[in-house]
Amino acid sequence: MKNVLVLCTGNSCRSQMAHGYLNYFQDSLANIYSAGIETHGLNPGAVAIMKEDGVDISHHTSNHVDEYEGIEWDFIITVCDHAKENCPFIPAENAERIHHNFFDPSKVEGTPEEKHAAFLKARDEIKEFCHVFVKEELVN
Rank of each mutant, 00 (worst) to 15 (best):
F129A: 05
G54M: 04
G110I: 05
C130I: 06
K107M: 13
H82I: 11
V79H: 03
F89L: 05
P105F: 05
E93D: 10
F129S: 01
A117P: 07
D56N: 10
N86G: 04
D74F: 07
D104N: 12
K121A: 02
R123T: 08
H59T: 08
E52L: 11
K121S: 08
V55H: 09
E96N: 14
N86V: 04
A117M: 07
G110W: 15
Y68C: 00
E114H: 11
I90V: 10
P88C: 03
E93L: 11
A95P: 01
H64V: 04
A92V: 07
V108A: 09
D81L: 02
G54R: 04
A92C: 08
H60K: 03
D104R: 13
K107S: 15
E85H: 15
T111F: 09
S62M: 02
T61Y: 08
I77D: 07
K127Q: 13
F75A: 00
E93F: 07
P112T: 07
T111P: 06
I71M: 11
G110Y: 13
F75C: 00
K107I: 09
G110D: 14
H82K: 12
S62R: 02
N63A: 11
C80H: 10
H64N: 04
N63S: 12
F103G: 00
A92E: 06
A92Y: 06
I77G: 08
I90G: 02
I71N: 10
G54C: 09
K107W: 12
H116V: 03
F89S: 02
E69Y: 15
G110T: 14
H64S: 01
T61V: 10
D66G: 06
K121H: 15
F119H: 00
I71P: 05
C80M: 00
